[in-house]
């Protein structure tokens, strides 16, 4: 593929007057989509809030069984991935260095993969400890009943978050290939920018999940 392909702005779709309108529309579309995502997670956060206020002790104890080190490492990994994501967007905006864009995208993918891997280790631990809700649930602490509710929410919230991560990694993989083919540059970087927005959003969700799930009663 010849080099100058990357310098061509992507053709404006027929419904738009110009590339600016197209970019504005795409950006607004992504923001609106993220609003729906907030509401989507918001349902779960609401449920969490209600049950935690009903059963604060049970939630505190159950939270104590989570592996805070792995959770903290994952938080750092995810924040790091947001940095590489931001660098990918910035590089696409200001330079035609396709390798650098792809490199930052791949770094984000790797960090996302590390996050998911650690999450998998945590899930496996919970599985061995019989903390997965359902018929085989077993919990030795006080108020096992409501602790199960906590673990329901733990798996649902982190599971939904992980699903978003998987989708994000998929999107980034496509972008990385596109970047290597020189599709992005200062005149056209919308997909990188919008995927970046999505990735940061997923990151921010985790920033809320981590304290709500892992740090409920760490002071005692």
């Amino acid at each position: 593929m010849s080099d100058h392909v990357g310098t061509l702005p992507a053709a404006t779709a027929h419904q738009f007057d110009d590339a600016v309108q197209q970019r504005d529309a795409s950006g607004l579309g992504m923001w609106v989509f993220l609003v729906t995502e907030i509401l989507f997670f918001g349902g779960l956060f609401t449920i969490y809030t209600v049950y935690r206020s009903l059963y604060p002790e049970a939630f505190g104890h159950a939270s104590g069984t989570l592996d805070i080190t792995l959770g903290a490492v994952n938080t750092a990994v995810l924040i790091g991935s947001s940095l590489t994501m931001a660098l990918a967007v910035h590089t696409a905006q200001v330079s035609r260095n396709r390798r650098l864009v792809a490199l930052f995208l791949c770094a984000t993918i790797v960090l996302g993969g590390v996050f998911l891997g650690i999450k998998g280790v945590e899930y496996a631990q919970k599985f061995h400890e019989h903390h997965v809700p359902g018929p085989s649930f077993h919990y030795s602490g006080a108020d096992a009943q409501h602790a199960e509710l906590f673990f329901c929410l733990y798996f649902l919230m982190t599971g939904l978050h992980a699903l978003h991560m998987v989708i994000g990694v998929g999107l980034l993989s496509v972008l990385a290939v596109m970047a290597l083919r020189g599709r992005f540059g200062p005149s056209y970087y919308t997909p990188v920018e919008l995927t970046g927005l999505y990735w940061h959003f997923v990151d921010i969700v985790w920033i809320f999940l981590f304290p709500l799930l892992y740090l409920v009663e760490r002071h005692s």
Binding site: V50, Y51, P133, G134, Q145, H146, L149, C152, L153, F155
Partner: peptide, 14 residues
């Protein structure tokens, strides 16, 4: 499907 009872009164769900 999985008997993870978010709304199940049996485990304190509402």
């Amino acid at each position: 499907a999985f008997h993870i009872g978010i709304f199940d009164p049996a485990i304190g769900g509402d």
